[in-house]
Write a protein that binds this DNA or RNA. Structure first.
Length: 831
RNA sequence: GCCCCCGUAGCCCAACCGGUAGAGGCAGCCGACUUAAAAUCGGUCAAGUGCAGGUUCGAUCCCUGCCGGGGGCACCA
């Protein structure tokens, strides 16, 4: 005990950690699973980590922030569910296995054990009864179970398609995992490959995923809402049917600008589409050859090159013609790679005058340009002809050269022309989405096996529920090296099975699921992690879910959050949950940087969390994370001071040790000034925490510590009851940020278990101030200050202000024209 | 190219509904303690809010334009 404060006034955080951690591990003050617990519930969730090794600074920040909220709600009397676990399927385990020959399962379990130790030391209020790890069969069997439900509903399906392929990871990637044409994991340029893969039909939920974002307004960061909206990318327009010469079926084209239909001068189909190939068959030999060569070139183009906006437009004329449904004109049909095969219908009507891409193509191929919109600049002057300016006029305007819609403005013209098309059966309003279906199959080992059996007779047959889980076979004897096909294909014994329907020999599906499947519903598994007959318990779900507060990095703003929202809606439709949005409130923390950039070993600016913890202690590191600035801002570790945090914590601890009054007494007779500060601080900190303004809350606690220090040293002294009241408040407030020091303080103050102490009660009467400072301005400049009662009347204050010496001086013999009185804080005199 | 966010002391950051520009911390400086230094404790200095306009009795806050930084989307018809 005596050794816990060193001679120089710092404190011995090692001793505190060694002392309290075993106590907490023993008493488990954060158990949430008692069904008889009558406290209201709150679900606070931290994004679970991948067990890649030890914790890093980013984890430390996120968990410190989440813990502030969890501990706050506990102090407020809630039964808080605050679980943690591991997102433990994924490539690093597999890569370690390939590189060092270790078993992915053993590697993963070792890392989990190591991380768990660090997490325990970090002392977050996690309920250790609920831990889960997604690589364990008792978890991933429910991935398979949910997959089966999706399959039954037609929401999981297999189709051949051009997919994103990472040549380095040797696996397909979801759209969301391709960033700027590069693999988000290894930055290798992604190439296109035609493969048959499993998909989840997220696009069926596009409207709900988009529209329900409205219910999260004000509860999720605007930035994340914007990113999700952007990603789903819904647009409104029309599908228009174009008859094709020499082809039975018309071609449907999607456009957001049906009003410009009279300006269409050609049609373009996606070069890599089946449609283009079919149309090309009717062309002469030279064209067929040119087309074939063009398509080859397109396929060889990397995604990164394809996305370059600097690229010249290229294409091949297919010697075929479409008929414009509104005026019967013949439009030449071209194939080009600037039209995407998997958006809309893979074909467009080109209106070069009013679409920049079409204009670029028209100019490159010397195709006609026809203006059908009279567009004006701000001064009402006509905009230059697009052919000359090489700039398409894409804005609003009045229709010209457009028959029945001449003279109409854009919006009216769209409505009118759509009506006309609809009447003739040649078109209708339509929506489109940037969002694509979620490609979930991976040709890798360390993931959830897809629970499908391929039978020659019966086709794709889901593994019956009572045969789940399909357990991942041991990696022993399997070649895990990426080679483009799943390693599971070589697990002969595992592979061979019988068809559940016809009992004939059949083969298992050899792909594994994207690990984002695992994290799409884990928050539900925490509710009943040991449940053996369902993914989660319905009663527990009604009790706890949805998550009240989710905390994690903005890096998951699109992928994980979109998928989890999708899963939740599917589970809602299955009647398994009663809510459609999984995370009621979301807090995104910023990144921890060093010297202005993200930490990395290669950059040589890596700050090791364990070093920081060894040097400054857990509490100081946590406090530093929280105090550094607003939670969503990045923290530059070079700008902050864990040493300063140590100093502050030592000051707090010293207060508690100096308190000389007995516990549980009344503080009513205590020093009024200090009491006012204490109650004001608790009141303000309460609001600050609820508003995620933790940095300011910490500053307020620092003020309280300073005020208490003064009271002890130069005020009423250590035996005044107000000093005890203030110190106890400091201990409880600090318990959100610095659990070890708070616990030590609490004990010094004669109590035990600060985490469950309860939030201090604010005496409203003590918040009322006797006097406030009123500023008196003349012409907007401060000329005097008055001490006035807060309830002062307007007339009285006006009189006082006009008589104030500073006012009299600066008004001089000027005439007072107007007096603005805002009792009790301000008077402004206008001359 | 389009959309969003942010510019406040040397630094990280506060400032309620438009009403005293400063709460807290870091660094600096001064002092105390020390043989000395570190550490600690006490005190103290510090910007007129990126720039230019506008609205207002009054603007860090609202509006317009520009400059600087960050982020998202980007051949999605």
């Amino acid at each position: 005990m005596a050794s816990e404060t060193t001679d120089d006034g710092r404190y011995d955080f090692r001793a505190l950690e060694a002392r309290w951690l075993p106590v907490w591990m023993d008493t488990q003050p954060f158990r949430s699973g008692d069904p008889k617990d009558k406290r209201p519930t709150k679900y606070v969730l931290d994004m679970f980590p991948y067990p890649s090794g030890d914790l890093h600074m980013g984890h430390a920040e996120a968990y410190a922030l989440g813990d502030v909220l969890a501990r706050y709600w506990i102090q407020r009397g809630f039964n808080v569910l605050h679980p943690i676990g591991w997102d433990s399927f994924g490539l690093p385990a597999e890569n370690a296995a390939i590189k060092r020959g270790v078993d992915p399962r053993a590697w993963t379990e070792d890392n989990i054990a190591q991380q768990r130790e660090s997490m325990e030391r970090y002392a977050c209020s996690w309920d250790w009864d609920r831990v889960l790890a997604t690589h364990r069969p008792e978890y991933y069997r429910w991935n398979q179970w949910i997959f089966t439900r999706l399959f039954e509903k037609g929401l999981a399906y297999r189709k051949p398609s051009m997919v994103n392929w990472c040549p380095s990871c040797q696996t397909v990637l979801a759209n969301e995992q391709v960033v700027g044409g590069l693999c988000e994991r290894c930055d290798t340029p992604v190439v296109k490959k035609k493969l048959t893969q499993w998909y989840f039909r997220v696009t069926d939920y596009a409207d709900r995923l988009l529209d329900d974002l409205g219910t999260l307004e004000g509860k999720w960061p605007d930035k994340v809402l914007a990113m999700q909206r952007n990603w789903i990318g819904r647009s409104h327009g029309a599908d228009v049917l174009f008859a094709i010469e020499g082809r039975e079926e018309p071609i449907t084209v999607y456009t957001t600008r049906p009003d410009t239909l009279f300006g269409a001068t050609f049609m373009v189909v996606a070069a890599d589409s089946d449609l283009a190939a079919e149309l090309a068959e009717g062309a002469d030999a030279a064209t067929r050859k040119a087309f074939a060569e063009y398509v080859e070139g397109v396929k060889a183009t990397s995604e990164i090159d394809r996305l370059s906006t600097e690229r010249e437009k290229t294409g091949v004329f297919l010697q075929r013609y479409a008929i414009n449904p509104v005026n019967g004109e013949r439009l030449p049909i071209w194939a080009s790679d600037y039209v995407l095969s998997d958006y809309g219908h893979g074909a467009i009507m080109a209106v070069p005058a009013h679409d920049q891409r079409d204009l670029d193509f028209a100019l490159a191929m010397e195709l006609p340009v026809r203006v059908v919109l009279d567009c004006r600049d701000e001064d009402g002057r006509p905009l230059p002809d697009p052919t000359v300016s090489r700039v398409a006029t894409t804005g609003d305007g009045v229709l010209v050269n457009s028959g029945p819609i001449d003279g109409l403005a854009k919006a009216d013209a769209i409505a009118r022309i759509t009506e006309i098309l609809e009447k003739d059966g040649k078109g209708k309003t339509a929506k489109n989405y940037r969002l694509r279906d979620w490609l979930i199959s991976r040709q890798r080992y360390w993931g959830t096996p897809i629970p499908i059996i391929h039978c020659e007779e019966c086709g794709e047959v889901p593994v019956p529920d009572d045969q789940l889980p399909v357990v991942l076979p041991s990696s022993e004897g399997l070649d895990l090296k990426p080679k483009g096909t799943s390693p599971l294909g070589a697990a002969d014994e595992w592979l061979a099975t019988t068809c559940p329907e016809c009992n004939r020999p059949a083969r298992r599906d050899t792909d594994t699921m994207d690990t984002f499947v695992d994290s799409s519903w884990y928050f539900l598994r925490y509710l009943s992690p040991a449940k053996e007959d369902a993914p989660f318990d319905g009663v527990e779900a009604r009790r706890w879910a949805p998550v009240d507060q989710y905390v994690g990095g903005v890096t998951h703003a699109i992928l994980h959050l979109l998928y989890a929202r999708f899963f939740t809606k599917v589970l809602f439709d299955l009647g398994m949950v009663g809510f459609e949005e999984p995370f009621t409130r979301l807090l995104n923390q910023g990144m921890v940087l060093m010297d202005g950039s993200a930490m990395s070993k290669s950059r040589g600016n890596l700050v090791r969390l364990s070093d920081q913890l060894d040097t400054y202690g857990v509490d100081a590191v946590r406090l530093t994370m929280v105090f550094a600035g607003p939670p969503e801002d990045d923290i530059d570790w070079a700008d902050v001071s864990p040493a300063g945090s140590v100093k502050f914590l030592a000051r707090g601890l010293r207060l508690a040790r100096e308190v000389a009054s007995e516990p549980n007494g009344s503080s009513a007779a205590g020093d009024a000034g200090l009491r006012a500060v204490t109650h004001r601080t608790v009141h303000d900190v309460t609001q600050l925490i609820e508003g995620f303004r933790f940095n300011v809350a910490v500053a307020r606690v620092m003020e309280l510590v300073n005020a208490t220090r003064k009271a002890i040293d130069t005020g009423p002294g250590p035996s005044d009851p107000a000093v005890r009241e203030a110190s106890e408040a400091v201990a409880i407030l600090l318990s959100l940020f610095a659990p070890y020091v708070a616990e030590e303080m609490w004990e010094a103050l004669g109590h035990s278990c600060v985490a469950r102490a309860g939030w201090p009660t604010v005496d409203e009467a003590l918040l009322v101030q006797d006097t406030v400072t009123c500023v008196v301005q003349v012409q907007g400049k401060v000329r005097d200050r008055l001490e006035v009662p807060p309830g002062i009347g307007e007339e009285e204050l006006r009189a006082l202000a006009l008589a104030a010496p500073g006012v009299v001086r600066s008004v001089g013999d000027g005439t007072v024209r107007k007096v603005i009185v805002r009792p009790p804080t301000l008077v402004n005199i206008v001359l």
